[in-house]
Simulated scan of single mutants.
Amino acid sequence: MSVLILIPARYASSRYPGKPLVGLKGASGETRSLIRRSWEAAMAVQGADHVAVATDDERIRDHAQAFGARVIMTSPDCRNGTERCAEAMTAFDDRPEIVVNLQGDAPLTPAWFVEDLIAGLRADPAADVATPVLRCTGQMRNDLLADRMAGRVGGTTAVFGHDRQALYFSKEVIPYAGENYGPDDPSPVYHHVGVYAYRPSALAAYPTWSEGTLEKLEGLEQLRFLERGRRLLCVEVEARGRQFWELNNPQDVTRLETMMKQMEID
């Protein structure tokens, strides 16, 4: 086995309980759950050997199995999706070359984001983990700022060095970039896309580390790798005309459905 895609999903989200089972209406009017749409996004990735949902909730398990997904039950003690993926990986007899964490709240993740991510990790043997970043247009940056001004925790931004090694991730909009950006202007802000590709050894080590201070403050699981000195590669991906947003808050349902209608995604 070469590439394993896992979709961690939990029912008891602090910001949005029951989020994986929330319905999203596509362009044709058909409503399918968030977890199903995330699974369909994973199934579209070329080169993936296995795709499975990892959850600790029977409601999510039953729903996912009903639409044909393989489900791996994990402990309710997993503190985040990375820990859930680390546990789920042990259900496979053969250790994969790469484990991908495609989080269950990102149904608009294009297949090429994940394919480029896998290629990026393979091309950098020194990297323990890789994650995609998408350069924000002025409008996307303005949307992120609007969320923060309204007191909502929306998307995550990333900053990285010349070698693409991550320096920091934040739920604040970083770096500071002034105010004068038109809707279609490229900005220096990069939106972090919530997908990860791990070397199995780094993933297996992750649950053995205690939560770091920055991880706790930001609520961002990937910061544990940085606080432990692990190399986390940022792979820039291209939108190719696609809009991208994650479902973080109930208000995002309407935003995602509008995007799906505009992009004619069923």
Rank of each mutant, 00 (worst) to 15 (best):
R37L: 11
G104Q: 04
R79E: 14
A48P: 14
G120F: 04
D77C: 09
P96Q: 05
L121C: 02
L117H: 13
M140F: 08
V114S: 00
G26Q: 10
V71R: 01
D143G: 04
R37D: 09
L102R: 07
M140S: 12
R61S: 13
M89T: 08
R79G: 09
D93H: 13
E97C: 14
A44F: 05
D124Q: 15
L134P: 00
A66Q: 15
V45L: 01
W112P: 01
D77F: 11
V71A: 14
D147V: 12
A146L: 12
D143Y: 04
D62F: 07
A64L: 13
A146C: 12
A48R: 08
G47F: 01
P125G: 02
C136H: 06
E58R: 04
A126G: 14
M89F: 13
S75L: 06
L24E: 00
P17C: 02
Q46T: 05
E30V: 15
D77E: 13
D93L: 11
I118W: 00
C78K: 01
D56Q: 06
Q103D: 10
R61V: 10
Q46I: 04
T137E: 09
I60R: 03
G26R: 10
Y11V: 04
E97M: 03
R37S: 12
A41R: 09
P76Y: 01
G81Y: 05
A91G: 11
R122A: 11
T55W: 07
A27M: 03
A123F: 01
V114Q: 08
M73R: 14
G81P: 02
G104M: 07
D93Q: 11
G104E: 04
E97L: 04
F92G: 09
P107F: 08
E30D: 13
T31R: 12
I118N: 00
D56A: 09
D49M: 03
V99F: 03
R15W: 09
A119T: 09
R84P: 07
G120A: 15
V133I: 15
R141N: 04
P76Q: 05
D128L: 14
T131C: 10
L108E: 11
S28I: 08
S33T: 10
S13K: 01
M43R: 13
S28D: 04
V22Q: 03
K25A: 14
Q46D: 05
T55K: 00
S33N: 13
R32A: 14
L102W: 11
Q139R: 13
A52C: 11
A48D: 10
E40F: 03
V129A: 00
F113C: 06
V53N: 08
R122C: 10
D128H: 08
Q65C: 11
D147S: 15
V100A: 05
G26K: 08
P125V: 05
V45D: 01
L144E: 06
Q139T: 13
N101D: 07
G47A: 07
S38H: 06
A106P: 01
P17A: 05
